[in-house]
Design a protein around this nucleic acid. Structure first.
Lengths: 235, 235
DNA sequence: CGCCTTGTTGAGCCCTTTCAAAGGATGTGG
DNA sequence: CCACATCCTTTGAAAGGGCTCAACAAGGCG
C-alpha cells in the first residue's frame, strides 16, 4: 500500500524545502543531516500524533504525505491540512503541550526527529517561516471551505499543493504525484467522496486537469489560479 | 454606530486576558500600562490592516470587536476570526512582513501599540500562548466550515466566543454582548445572511439561546457544547 | 418624522448529500 | 498465472439543506 520508493538521499527534498524558507548555515545543515540519518518509516494510516495528548518529539516529514485532522465523535473527519515532505509535525521549541490535532500518515511515510532550533538561529528562522506558511495555508483553508463552491475548492486545493510541492522541487511543470484517495481529498474539502468524484470529472471535462494513477497534471496553473481567484502566497 | 462606552480603565480587560495566558511580571505590566495609555479609537468599518500590504506596528485590541477577513475579487467575504478585547492584531516580533489577511473594525474599536516582547520574557510567553490559542481557533474554524451543518456551526461559534470572552471576564454566566450584525456572523460561518437568520430562529425555538438587542444568552453552554460535539480548548 | 441599515419571511431553484450498486485496481494466496 | 478479496472509483436516482430573489417589518439616527 503506497510503498515508499527508497530515495538516494533520504531527506534531501525536505532539507531543500527548509533551505528555501530561510538560508541555512553549515551548523543548521549539519544538525539536519544528523537528524535525517535517524529517519524511520511509518505505515499508512498510522497515527503520528493524537489530539488532546501530549505532543512528543517534533518530527520532520522526509517522504510521503500525512494529514492533520480533527475527528468528530460521530465519525465525521475534517482534514485540516496535508503535510508534505519538508513539513514539520509538531512545533519545535514548543514542548510539553497538548496536540491541537491528530496527524495521520496518509501514505507510508518517512520521518526523523526535527532538530531543536536551540543553538542554531538559521534553523529557527526556517521554522518560523514554515510556521508562517502553515498559517497562510490555514487561512486559505478557511476561505476555501467557507466561500468557495465544490469546483473552486478542488482547484484551489490543487493549486496550493502545486505551489508547495513546487517549492520542494517535487512538481514537474504543472504535474505532481497525488498519492491520496478521493475520500481524503473529500475530507479536506468538506465534501462527500461521491460529490468530489463528480466535481473531479467536471474539471476533467473542462480540460482543467488530468488525474491518472496517482499523478495530477494541471493544464495551466496560472490561468486556473486566476479563474478561481486564488492569490499566490508571497512572503 | 456602536459607540464605545468609555471605561474606567481603558485596557484593563485586555491586560487581564493576557495575564491569564501567562503570568505577567511587573516589567510586563509596566510595558502594557505604558502602551494602553496610548490607546486610540478607530471607527467601525475602518481597516486596521490590509492583506498583501506590509503589516505595521502590531496592535493590541483594548475594546470593541474586529474581524480578520479575506475578500474575494467578486465581493464574497470570509471572516477568518473575530478579534476580541485582549487579542493581538499582527504578530509582535514579526515585522516587515506582508499581511496574510485584512483586519476590519466591526464596531468602534480601541487599540494601542502592542509592546514588543524584546526585553520582557513574560510578555513573550503571553504572546506565544495567544498565538497558540489563535491557532486552535483557526483549526476549529476549518472543522466548523468543513464538517458542521448550519445549526452546529452557529452554536459552535457562539461557544467559542463564550469561552474567549469568559477568559476576558466579559461573559456573565452564559450571556455576553454580541455587537455584530447577522451579516457578519454569516460571513464568519460561510452562510448567507438569510439562512443564518433562519438558523438563529431555529435555535431560539429550540430554547438553546436568546438574542435581543446585541446581547446573547446561551441557555446551557456545557450542555450545548456536548450536543454539537465541541471539545473545549484546554491548553 | 422619514431615511437607511438590519432583521424577518416566503417561494422556488440548485448544489450537495444520501443510498445503492456496479466497475476497476491492486495485492494476496493458491 | 489465475482466482479471489479488498479497496477505490464511478454512476444513477431521489431527497434535503442552503441559496437566490423579493418584499416587508423593525429599529436606530439625523
Amino acid at each position: 500500500m503506497n510503498r515508499l520508493a527508497p530515495r538516494a538521499e533520504p531527506g534531501a527534498v525536505a532539507v531543500a524545502r527548509l533551505a528555501r524558507l530561510a538560508p541555512l548555515d553549515p551548523a543548521a545543515l549539519a544538525a539536519l543531516s544528523g537528524a535525517t540519518a535517524c529517519g524511520r518509516i511509518i505505515g499508512s494510516r498510522r497515527e503520528l500524533m493524537r489530539e488532546g495528548e501530549r505532543v512528543g518529539q517534533p518530527l520532520l516529514l522526509l517522504d510521503g504525505w500525512a494529514g492533520e485532522a480533527r475527528l468528530l465523535p460521530d465519525g465525521r473527519r475534517q482534514i485540516l491540512s496535508f503535510l508534505l515532505p519538508g513539513d514539520l509535525i509538531g512545533e519545535p521549541g514548543l514542548c510539553d503541550a497538548t496536540a491541537l490535532s491528530t496527524v495521520v500518515a496518509l501514505t507510508d511515510v518517512a520521518v526523523c526527529p526535527a532538530p531543536g532550533p536551540g543553538a542554531v538561529p538559521s534553523l529557527g528562522a526556517a521554522y518560523a517561516a514554515a510556521q508562517r506558511l502553515r498559517e497562510a495555508c490555514l487561512l486559505g483553508a478557511v476561505t476555501r471551505l467557507g466561500r468557495l463552491d465544490a469546483q473552486e475548492r478542488l482547484c484551489d486545493l490543487f493549486l496550493e499543493l502545486h505551489e508547495r510541492l513546487d517549492a520542494a522541487g517535487l512538481a514537474d511543470g504543472g504535474a505532481f504525484d497525488l498519492p491520496v484517495t478521493q475520500e481524503m481529498l473529500a475530507d479536506a474539502l468538506g465534501l462527500t467522496p461521491v460529490h468530489l468524484n463528480r466535481t473531479l470529472q467536471l474539471c476533467r471535462r473542462q480540460g482543467d486537469l488530468t488525474l491518472r494513477s496517482g499523478r495530477l497534471e494541471l493544464a495551466s496553473p496560472v490561468q486556473l489560479a486566476d479563474r478561481v481567484g486564488r492569490l499566490a502566497f508571497r512572503p
